[in-house]
Amino acid sequence: MTEYKLVVVGAGGVGKSALTIQLIQNHFVDEYDPTIEDSYRKQVVIDGETCLLDILDTAGQEEYSAMRDQYMRTGEGFLCVFAINNTKSFEDIHHYREQIKRVKDSEDVPMVLVGNKCDLPSRTVDTKQAQDLARSYGIPFIETSAKTRQGVDDAFYTLVREIRKHKEKMSKDGKKKKKKSKTKCVIM
């Protein structure tokens, strides 16, 4: 069974824990209790493949930012979460993405942009803004509501699919490099 290491990042209060708990335990946590770091595991079937999701729910508070490099190193894919009623959390996505790329030393890291709290009427981040940002990053965008469960499975499952595509691409690139290195030079 394939294991996928997913990391949920975003500013404090955007609903990272609520999304994760909704996926794992099928219930909505409405009281806000700032996370330092929590880890969850769940076995699911995605596109006919049974897999184990190892999900790291991270601290959004700035005082825990020193811990970010460590979990970013171990993560295979990242859910970059903002709240649709919090423009600052949307603007912060850029910083999370840049930090992930720096730590992973790669421009090509599996990510999904997630606009959470889409059940709320007080939207300050337009869907088109988020779609445009995701398009500019070359990553999928999904709106979710941890409260109603809308888009929750889709967000995590899409990230797994992005990781699969990335692994497939990397193995193809690896095979191309191996083929090239088999060419021999004969000096007579």
Rank of each mutant, 00 (worst) to 15 (best):
Y4E: 14
Q99C: 04
I55T: 10
D92N: 09
H94A: 13
D119I: 11
Q61R: 03
D92S: 15
E162M: 06
K88T: 15
L56Q: 01
S181P: 15
G12H: 11
L113R: 01
R73H: 10
K88V: 14
K165H: 07
Y40M: 01
E31H: 07
K180G: 14
V103C: 13
I55W: 02
K175I: 14
C51V: 13
M188V: 09
K88H: 06
E49F: 05
G60A: 00
G13W: 12
I187F: 08
A130S: 08
Q131G: 13
V29L: 12
T20H: 01
K101W: 05
Y64V: 00
D38Y: 01
I139V: 07
Y96F: 14
G10W: 02
D108L: 07
L53K: 09
A59S: 05
Q61V: 05
S89Q: 05
C118R: 08
G60M: 00
D153K: 06
F82C: 14
V29R: 04
V8D: 03
P121A: 11
I142L: 05
I36Q: 01
K101I: 09
Y137P: 12
T20Q: 03
Q150P: 15
F28C: 03
I24M: 11
F78N: 07
P110D: 02
C118K: 06
Q129W: 10
K182F: 12
D69I: 03
A146G: 13
K42S: 09
A66P: 12
H94Q: 15
K5F: 02
A59P: 00
C80F: 15
T2C: 10
G115V: 12
I139C: 09
S171L: 05
K101F: 05
S145R: 15
F78L: 02
D153T: 07
G13C: 11
D154V: 07
I36F: 03
Y137N: 11
T127D: 13
V44P: 12
T58G: 01
E107F: 04
T2H: 13
Y137A: 10
M111R: 01
L23Y: 11
T50G: 08
D153M: 07
I46T: 14
D30M: 10
A18L: 00
Q131R: 10
L159N: 03
R135L: 08
D108F: 08
K147W: 03
V9E: 01
V9A: 07
E62H: 03
R123P: 09
H94M: 07
I21S: 15
F78G: 01
V152Q: 13
I139L: 15
E31G: 06
I100H: 01
C80N: 03
N86E: 13
L133D: 07
R68A: 04
V112T: 05
F78D: 05
H166Y: 06
D38V: 01
L52I: 10
D38R: 00
K177E: 10
S65P: 00
A83D: 15
M170C: 06
L23W: 12
K184T: 05
M188W: 07
S17H: 00
D57F: 00
C51W: 12
E62D: 06
A83C: 10
S122H: 08
S89I: 02
I142N: 05
Y71Q: 00
Y4G: 10
I46S: 14
D54F: 02
H95D: 12
I100C: 05
L53P: 07
V186A: 15
Q70F: 02
Q61W: 01
V45A: 13
Y96D: 01
A134K: 02
L120V: 12
A134Q: 09
I46D: 15
E162H: 08
A11C: 12
I187M: 13
G138T: 13
N116M: 15
R97L: 15
Q25R: 04
T158W: 13
A11N: 05
L53I: 11
P34K: 02
Q25L: 11
E143V: 05
D154K: 06
Y32R: 02
L113F: 11
M67E: 00
Y71K: 00
V109I: 11
D153H: 06
F78W: 01
Y4W: 06
C118Y: 11
V109Q: 03
D154F: 06
S17W: 02
K167W: 08
Q61A: 13
I46W: 13
I93L: 06
P121T: 11
K182C: 05
I24K: 07
D119K: 06
E107K: 14
I55P: 00
V152P: 11
L19C: 13
A134W: 12
T58A: 03
Y157W: 06
K179L: 13
N85I: 13
Y32I: 02
T20M: 04
R102M: 11
V103A: 05
M67Q: 00
E107R: 11
V8Q: 03
E76P: 02
D47S: 10
D108R: 08
T124I: 07
D154P: 07
E98M: 08
K117M: 14
S65G: 05
G12I: 04
T2Y: 11
G75K: 01
D54L: 02
A11Y: 11
A130K: 09
T2E: 15
K176M: 11
S17Q: 01
K117Y: 14
Q70S: 07
Y64L: 06
G12Q: 13
K117L: 15
T158D: 04
F90M: 15
K16I: 00
M111L: 08
I36A: 06
L6A: 11
A83H: 13
T127Q: 04
R164H: 14
L113A: 07
E62M: 03
V44D: 13
G115W: 11
P110V: 03
S65E: 10
D126K: 11
V112D: 03
V44E: 11
S65Q: 07
Q70M: 09
K175M: 12
D38W: 00
S145F: 05
V29H: 07
N86T: 06
K175R: 14
A134P: 11
R97G: 10
G60E: 00
L56S: 01
